Amino acid sequence: MSAQDKLAGYASGFSSLDPQIIAENVTADYRLLDKNGAVVERNDLPQYIAELRKLGDEMQISDVMVDGDKAWCKWQIGEVIGAGLIRFSDNGVCQEQLFYS
């Protein structure tokens, strides 16, 4: 599977808030750097997504820009609007840094 396929699968998993799909498209050493320095690892995804589901049933992702092994996107779930900076490869997404208030 190509790096673009892995990125698309990752986005699909977040759009539908499906931790299984997200996990299938990340590396073993995946780290999501959330607000206030919290770190979410691959094994933490089900709990993290359960918390997101309290905000809404889906995440809307837009304004995606890709440059080499990095992607940037805007996202919204419920009333929360943010952005993410993502690093990825043929092995999957390895890191995402979230920005929101």
Rank of each mutant, 00 (worst) to 15 (best):
V64Y: 04
E96T: 15
L98K: 00
R53C: 07
F14D: 12
I21D: 13
M1V: 07
Q20V: 11
S12C: 03
D63S: 12
L85R: 05
K74V: 14
V26C: 10
C73G: 12
K6G: 02
L33A: 08
I61D: 05
S101G: 15
N91R: 11
L98E: 13
G82K: 00
G92S: 10
L33Y: 07
E58D: 14
E79D: 15
P46W: 06
G92C: 03
R53G: 09
S89R: 02
I86W: 05
E51H: 08
Q20L: 05
V80K: 08
I21Y: 10
E24N: 15
F14V: 07
T27S: 06
Q60I: 04
D57P: 03
V39K: 00
T27C: 10
L7V: 06
A23K: 00
G56K: 00
A3V: 03
E41M: 14
D34N: 13
Y100N: 05
K35H: 15
L55R: 01
I21H: 02
K35S: 14
K6M: 11
G82A: 06
D18A: 01
S12T: 07
Y100A: 06
L85A: 07
Q97H: 14
D44H: 09
K70W: 09
C94K: 11
A83T: 09
W75S: 10
M65Y: 05
L32V: 01
S12F: 07
E51M: 12
Y100L: 08
R87W: 15
L52M: 12
S89W: 00
A23E: 07
D34A: 12
A83F: 10
Q47M: 13
V66P: 12
A71K: 01
G78Q: 00
L55T: 08
Y100T: 05
L33E: 12
A38T: 12
Q47I: 09
V93C: 10
V26P: 02
C73R: 13
I77G: 01
G68W: 01
Y48T: 06
W72C: 08
I86L: 10
G37K: 01
Y30I: 02
G56F: 04
G13A: 05
G78A: 02
E79Q: 11
D34W: 04
I22C: 03
I81H: 07
W72N: 12
D90I: 00
Y48C: 08
V93L: 09
D57E: 12
E79K: 07
E79L: 09
K35G: 13
G37S: 02
K54H: 10
